[in-house]
Protein backbone atom coordinates (compact mmCIF):
# COMPACT_ATOMS: atom_id res chain seq x y z
CA UNK A 1 0.00 0.00 0.00
CA UNK A 2 1.82 3.08 -1.22
CA UNK A 3 -0.32 6.19 -1.35
CA UNK A 4 0.88 9.06 -3.55
CA UNK A 5 -0.02 12.69 -2.87
CA UNK A 6 -0.64 15.78 -4.98
CA UNK A 7 1.97 18.58 -4.75
CA UNK A 8 4.34 16.56 -2.60
CA UNK A 9 7.04 18.17 -0.42
CA UNK A 10 9.28 15.18 -0.89
CA UNK A 11 9.31 13.01 -3.96
CA UNK A 12 11.59 9.99 -4.10
CA UNK A 13 11.66 8.09 -7.35
CA UNK A 14 13.27 4.69 -7.95
CA UNK A 15 15.93 5.28 -5.27
CA UNK A 16 18.65 2.68 -4.76
CA UNK A 17 21.54 3.25 -2.35
CA UNK A 18 24.51 0.93 -1.86
CA UNK A 19 27.35 0.82 0.66
CA UNK A 20 30.46 -0.68 -0.88
CA UNK A 21 28.41 -2.25 -3.66
CA UNK A 22 25.97 -3.85 -1.17
CA UNK A 23 22.51 -2.33 -1.68
CA UNK A 24 20.84 -1.05 1.51
CA UNK A 25 17.83 0.56 -0.15
CA UNK A 26 16.12 -0.95 -3.16
CA UNK A 27 13.99 0.96 -5.68
CA UNK A 28 12.23 3.19 -3.17
CA UNK A 29 9.35 5.23 -4.57
CA UNK A 30 7.14 7.58 -2.56
CA UNK A 31 5.72 11.07 -2.13
CA UNK A 32 5.11 12.90 1.16
CA UNK A 33 2.42 15.46 1.98
CA UNK A 34 3.15 18.90 3.46
CA UNK A 35 2.25 19.94 7.01
CA UNK A 36 2.42 16.50 8.56
CA UNK A 37 4.52 14.72 11.14
CA UNK A 38 5.80 11.76 9.19
CA UNK A 39 7.41 8.67 10.69
CA UNK A 40 9.87 6.41 8.92
CA UNK A 41 9.52 3.06 10.65
CA UNK A 42 11.38 -0.18 10.24
CA UNK A 43 13.65 -2.67 12.03
CA UNK A 44 17.37 -2.15 12.67
CA UNK A 45 19.37 -2.11 9.48
CA UNK A 46 16.31 -1.31 7.38
CA UNK A 47 18.05 1.71 5.87
CA UNK A 48 16.03 4.42 7.64
CA UNK A 49 19.00 6.69 8.40
CA UNK A 50 20.44 5.97 4.98
CA UNK A 51 17.21 7.20 3.42
CA UNK A 52 17.52 10.55 5.25
CA UNK A 53 21.17 10.90 4.26
CA UNK A 54 20.31 10.13 0.65
CA UNK A 55 17.56 12.76 0.64
CA UNK A 56 19.97 15.32 2.15
CA UNK A 57 22.54 14.56 -0.52
CA UNK A 58 25.10 13.42 2.06
CA UNK A 59 25.68 10.02 0.46
CA UNK A 60 25.77 9.16 -3.26
CA UNK A 61 22.81 7.44 -4.90
CA UNK A 62 23.30 4.26 -6.91
CA UNK A 63 20.26 5.25 -8.94
CA UNK A 64 17.06 7.26 -8.71
CA UNK A 65 15.94 10.80 -8.25
CA UNK A 66 14.95 12.93 -5.26
CA UNK A 67 13.03 16.20 -5.50
CA UNK A 68 11.99 18.57 -2.71
CA UNK A 69 9.19 20.92 -3.82
CA UNK A 70 10.17 19.63 -7.25
CA UNK A 71 13.75 20.95 -6.88
CA UNK A 72 16.98 19.03 -6.40
CA UNK A 73 18.24 19.32 -2.80
CA UNK A 74 21.21 21.52 -3.70
CA UNK A 75 18.84 24.29 -4.81
CA UNK A 76 16.73 24.29 -1.63
CA UNK A 77 19.20 23.52 1.18
CA UNK A 78 18.27 26.68 3.08
CA UNK A 79 14.64 25.54 3.33
CA UNK A 80 15.57 22.14 4.74
CA UNK A 81 16.99 21.16 8.12
CA UNK A 82 18.66 17.91 9.06
CA UNK A 83 19.10 16.61 12.61
CA UNK A 84 21.64 13.76 12.67
CA UNK A 85 21.59 10.98 15.27
CA UNK A 86 22.74 12.26 18.63
CA UNK A 87 25.43 9.55 18.83
CA UNK A 88 27.00 10.68 15.57
CA UNK A 89 28.86 13.55 17.24
CA UNK A 90 31.43 13.86 20.03
CA UNK A 91 29.68 15.59 22.94
CA UNK A 92 33.03 16.26 24.65
CA UNK A 93 33.70 18.81 21.92
CA UNK A 94 34.60 22.14 23.59
CA UNK A 95 31.42 24.10 22.89
CA UNK A 96 28.56 25.60 24.88
CA UNK A 97 24.87 24.91 24.30
CA UNK A 98 24.54 28.39 22.80
CA UNK A 99 27.42 27.83 20.39
CA UNK A 100 25.94 24.60 19.05
CA UNK A 101 22.56 26.24 18.44
CA UNK A 102 24.33 29.14 16.74
CA UNK A 103 25.60 26.63 14.16
CA UNK A 104 22.03 26.56 12.87
CA UNK A 105 22.55 30.18 11.79
CA UNK A 106 25.79 29.50 9.89
CA UNK A 107 24.10 28.55 6.59
CA UNK A 108 22.51 32.02 6.54
CA UNK A 109 25.93 33.67 6.87
CA UNK A 110 28.41 33.97 4.05
CA UNK A 111 31.87 32.41 4.13
CA UNK A 112 34.04 33.95 6.88
CA UNK A 113 31.14 36.18 8.11
CA UNK A 114 30.62 36.44 11.87
CA UNK A 115 27.17 35.88 13.45
CA UNK A 116 25.22 39.08 14.13
CA UNK A 117 23.27 40.26 17.17
CA UNK A 118 20.09 39.10 15.48
CA UNK A 119 21.50 35.60 15.12
CA UNK A 120 22.20 35.52 18.86
CA UNK A 121 18.64 36.65 19.59
CA UNK A 122 17.21 33.88 17.42
CA UNK A 123 19.39 31.38 19.25
CA UNK A 124 17.89 32.48 22.57
CA UNK A 125 14.34 32.16 21.22
CA UNK A 126 15.03 28.68 19.92
CA UNK A 127 16.55 27.59 23.22
CA UNK A 128 13.46 28.91 25.01
CA UNK A 129 11.26 26.90 22.65
CA UNK A 130 12.92 23.65 23.68
CA UNK A 131 12.98 24.79 27.34
CA UNK A 132 16.78 24.88 27.46
CA UNK A 133 17.46 28.61 27.85
CA UNK A 134 18.75 28.23 31.40
CA UNK A 135 21.47 25.88 30.11
CA UNK A 136 22.76 28.21 27.38
CA UNK A 137 26.26 28.53 28.84
CA UNK A 138 26.69 24.88 29.80
CA UNK A 139 29.32 22.79 28.12
CA UNK A 140 27.43 20.31 25.93
CA UNK A 141 29.13 17.30 27.53
CA UNK A 142 27.47 18.13 30.86
CA UNK A 143 23.95 17.61 29.52
CA UNK A 144 21.79 14.50 29.71
CA UNK A 145 20.95 12.63 26.51
CA UNK A 146 17.51 14.20 26.31
CA UNK A 147 18.91 17.67 26.84
CA UNK A 148 21.51 17.09 24.11
CA UNK A 149 18.72 16.06 21.78
CA UNK A 150 16.82 19.25 22.60
CA UNK A 151 19.94 21.28 21.80
CA UNK A 152 20.04 19.58 18.41
CA UNK A 153 16.40 20.46 17.85
CA UNK A 154 17.02 24.07 18.88
CA UNK A 155 19.80 24.20 16.31
CA UNK A 156 17.36 22.89 13.70
CA UNK A 157 14.80 25.55 14.71
CA UNK A 158 17.48 28.22 14.33
CA UNK A 159 17.76 27.24 10.68
CA UNK A 160 14.20 28.53 10.16
CA UNK A 161 13.48 25.83 7.61
CA UNK A 162 10.18 24.55 6.24
CA UNK A 163 11.06 20.88 6.05
CA UNK A 164 12.82 18.97 8.84
CA UNK A 165 14.47 15.57 8.76
CA UNK A 166 15.23 14.12 12.20
CA UNK A 167 17.16 10.92 12.78
CA UNK A 168 15.96 9.10 15.92
CA UNK A 169 15.17 12.18 18.04
CA UNK A 170 13.46 9.99 20.65
CA UNK A 171 16.30 7.51 21.10
CA UNK A 172 17.59 7.44 24.68
CA UNK A 173 15.74 10.53 25.90
CA UNK A 174 14.08 10.97 29.29
CA UNK A 175 10.33 11.48 29.75
CA UNK A 176 10.61 15.26 30.18
CA UNK A 177 12.56 15.63 26.97
CA UNK A 178 10.22 13.31 25.11
CA UNK A 179 7.24 15.43 26.14
CA UNK A 180 9.08 18.63 25.20
CA UNK A 181 9.98 17.22 21.78
CA UNK A 182 6.40 16.07 21.07
CA UNK A 183 5.07 19.48 22.07
CA UNK A 184 7.59 21.12 19.78
CA UNK A 185 6.69 18.89 16.82
CA UNK A 186 3.02 19.79 17.26
CA UNK A 187 3.87 23.50 17.36
CA UNK A 188 5.89 23.15 14.21
CA UNK A 189 3.10 21.29 12.44
CA UNK A 190 0.68 24.05 13.46
CA UNK A 191 3.00 26.50 11.68
CA UNK A 192 2.66 24.45 8.51
CA UNK A 193 6.07 22.82 8.69
CA UNK A 194 6.70 19.28 7.53
CA UNK A 195 8.67 17.00 9.84
CA UNK A 196 10.05 13.64 8.80
CA UNK A 197 11.23 11.52 11.73
CA UNK A 198 13.18 8.28 11.71
CA UNK A 199 11.81 6.18 14.55
CA UNK A 200 12.45 2.60 15.59
CA UNK A 201 9.89 2.16 18.34
CA UNK A 202 6.65 0.63 17.09
CA UNK A 203 4.97 1.14 20.47
CA UNK A 204 4.87 4.91 20.15
CA UNK A 205 4.81 5.31 16.38
CA UNK A 206 1.04 5.28 16.04
CA UNK A 207 0.66 7.96 18.68
CA UNK A 208 3.37 10.30 17.34
CA UNK A 209 2.83 10.40 13.60
CA UNK A 210 0.18 11.42 11.07
CA UNK A 211 1.71 9.66 8.11
CA UNK A 212 3.83 6.55 8.27
CA UNK A 213 6.41 5.02 5.97
CA UNK A 214 7.26 1.38 6.58
CA UNK A 215 10.61 0.34 5.19
CA UNK A 216 12.86 -2.66 5.35
CA UNK A 217 15.37 -2.09 2.57
CA UNK A 218 12.35 -1.87 0.28
CA UNK A 219 9.41 0.41 0.81
CA UNK A 220 6.58 -1.64 2.30
CA UNK A 221 3.96 1.06 2.77
CA UNK A 222 3.39 4.80 2.82
CA UNK A 223 0.19 6.50 3.86
CA UNK A 224 -1.95 7.89 6.70
CA UNK A 225 -1.26 5.92 9.87
CA UNK A 226 -4.78 4.49 10.10
CA UNK A 227 -4.28 2.73 6.77
CA UNK A 228 -0.71 1.63 7.47
CA UNK A 229 -1.01 0.03 10.90
CA UNK A 230 -2.35 -3.32 9.75
CA UNK A 231 -1.03 -6.75 10.81
CA UNK A 232 -0.17 -7.64 7.21
CA UNK A 233 1.95 -4.55 6.57
CA UNK A 234 3.69 -4.62 9.95
CA UNK A 235 4.47 -8.30 9.47
CA UNK A 236 5.80 -7.60 5.99
CA UNK A 237 8.10 -4.97 7.53
CA UNK A 238 9.30 -6.81 10.61
CA UNK A 239 9.22 -10.34 9.24
CA UNK A 240 7.75 -13.31 11.02
CA UNK A 241 9.66 -13.02 14.29
CA UNK A 242 7.57 -14.36 17.14
CA UNK A 243 8.34 -11.60 19.62
CA UNK A 244 7.62 -8.93 17.06
CA UNK A 245 4.39 -10.63 16.10
CA UNK A 246 3.11 -10.66 19.66
CA UNK A 247 4.10 -7.04 20.00
CA UNK A 248 2.18 -6.20 16.85
CA UNK A 249 -0.86 -7.95 18.26
CA UNK A 250 -0.67 -5.81 21.39
CA UNK A 251 -0.19 -2.68 19.35
CA UNK A 252 -3.21 -3.36 17.25
CA UNK A 253 -5.27 -3.89 20.38
CA UNK A 254 -4.02 -0.57 21.68
CA UNK A 255 -4.84 1.09 18.39
CA UNK A 256 -8.43 -0.13 18.33
CA UNK A 257 -8.76 0.92 21.93
CA UNK A 258 -7.46 4.46 21.33
CA UNK A 259 -9.54 4.94 18.17
CA UNK A 260 -12.65 3.79 20.03
CA UNK A 261 -11.81 6.34 22.68
CA UNK A 262 -11.35 9.04 20.03
CA UNK A 263 -14.57 8.14 18.23
Amino acid sequence: MILQVENPVVEVHDLTVAYQKKPVLWSIDFTLPAGNIIGIIGPNGAGKSTLLKAIMGIIPLASGQIRLWNFPIKDVRKRVSYVPQRESVDWDFPASVKEVVLMGRYPKLSLFQRPTKKDHEIVKQCLAQVEMLEYENRQIGQLSGGQQQRVFLARALAQEAELYFMDEPFAGVDMASEAAIIKLLHQMRAQGKTIVVVHHDLQTAYEYFDWILLINQRLIASGPKEKIFTPELLQATYGGKLTTLTKIGELLKKKSFSSRKDG
Binding site: P84, V89, M103, L109, Q159
Partner: peptide, 22 residues
Protein backbone atom coordinates in the same frame (compact mmCIF):
# COMPACT_ATOMS: atom_id res chain seq x y z
CA UNK B 1 40.56 33.00 12.41
CA UNK B 2 38.77 33.38 9.09
CA UNK B 3 37.33 29.89 8.81
CA UNK B 4 36.53 29.54 12.53
CA UNK B 5 32.84 28.78 12.14
CA UNK B 6 33.33 26.52 9.13
CA UNK B 7 36.00 24.53 10.96
CA UNK B 8 33.94 24.37 14.15
CA UNK B 9 30.83 22.95 12.49
CA UNK B 10 32.79 20.69 10.11
CA UNK B 11 34.68 19.03 12.95
CA UNK B 12 31.86 18.90 15.50
CA UNK B 13 29.13 17.66 13.20
CA UNK B 14 30.29 16.78 9.67
CA UNK B 15 26.89 15.32 8.69
CA UNK B 16 25.08 18.50 9.65
CA UNK B 17 27.76 20.59 7.91
CA UNK B 18 27.29 18.58 4.74
CA UNK B 19 23.52 18.88 4.96
CA UNK B 20 23.86 22.67 5.04
CA UNK B 21 25.98 22.59 1.90
CA UNK B 22 29.43 22.93 3.47
Amino acid sequence: GLAYKELQVSIFDPLFAQATGL
